[in-house]
């Protein structure tokens, strides 16, 4: 049985279908990129994985668990922005990954000291130790996303979901963030889903690239049909040759 299992998922908002007949099985430790045109349901798919939304039909299950109805600690997430807490210092942002699950959202005494040490270790690992006592607003966009990733990982999620995490960064910073993410994955293998509109980024980082598109298109009513996974590429070894892990439209 695969780690992440999406079975025949449909999602519509009102009478407007967004996704239809989406099925995919992903192994543990796999890095999956999700690409597609704007409005083709990539972010909706990520929200379904995150359990921020529940599908109108079908189900999403992680590690054999019953489908979740709201986001929880087994899913880590990094958004394009607003992913860190502006009112907490950088250290406290990492600490929040352990503290927020406590009853009152705080740890005390020995537990807090231990968590603080782990937070400092995490900050040192991602190169943010020197700004631990500052607020996120003092960080550049790339550093904020670094913090957001470190924060998400500190909670030890089963899967990590990235929603266009580097979309707002300049090209140079984006490249260094690619290296950062690759290094992190080399240290700790993790299952990652990343939505991106940058095809080359998708192929560069991922083991698999899922392409979302509409298979049916009504020129008079573009809203009529939802999107589904139209291609499923094996992107290992730089994605060359572009081997299809499964045939298009296979159920």
């Amino acid at each position: 049985m695969s780690f992440v299992s999406v079975r025949n998922v449909f999602q519509s908002y009102g009478d407007r279908p967004i996704l239809e007949r989406v099925s995919v099985e992903v192994e543990e430790g796999c890095f999956v990129s999700i690409v597609g045109a704007s409005g083709c349901g990539k972010s909706t798919f990520l929200r379904l994985l995150l359990a921020q939304e529940t599908p109108s039909r079908g189900e999403v299950s992680i590690a054999g668990q019953p489908p979740a109805r709201e986001p929880g600690r087994d899913r880590g997430v990094v958004f394009q922005k607003y992913s860190v807490f502006p009112h907490l210092t950088i250290r406290d942002n990492i600490l929040a990954a352990e503290e927020l699950s406590a009853r009152w959202g705080r740890l005390w005494g020995r537990a807090r000291r231990a968590a603080r040490e782990r937070a400092d270790a995490a900050l040192a690992r991602v190169g943010l130790a020197h700004v631990a006592d500052q607020y996120p607003a003092a960080l550049s966009g790339g550093m904020q996303q670094r913090l957001a990733i470190a924060q998400a990982l500190q909670a030890r999620p089963r899967i990590l979901l990235l929603d266009e995490p580097f979309g707002a960064l300049d090209p140079g910073t984006r490249l260094s963030m690619h290296d950062f993410l690759t290094e992190l994955r080399a240290e700790t293998p993790m299952t990652v889903f990343m939505v991106t509109h940058d095809l080359s980024e998708g192929f560069k980082l991922a083991d698999r690239v899922l392409v979302f598109d509409k298979t049916r298109w009504d020129p008079d009513a573009p809203e009529r049909w939802g999107a589904t996974i139209t291609y499923d590429f094996d992107a290992r070894h730089g994605g060359i040759p572009f081997q299809s892990a499964r045939a298009p439209h296979a159920a």
Partner: peptide, 11 residues
């Protein structure tokens, strides 16, 4: 995003 983030951290 912040609320969802807090949820994924178990809050």
């Amino acid at each position: 995003e912040q609320i969802v983030k807090a949820e994924t951290l178990g809050a």
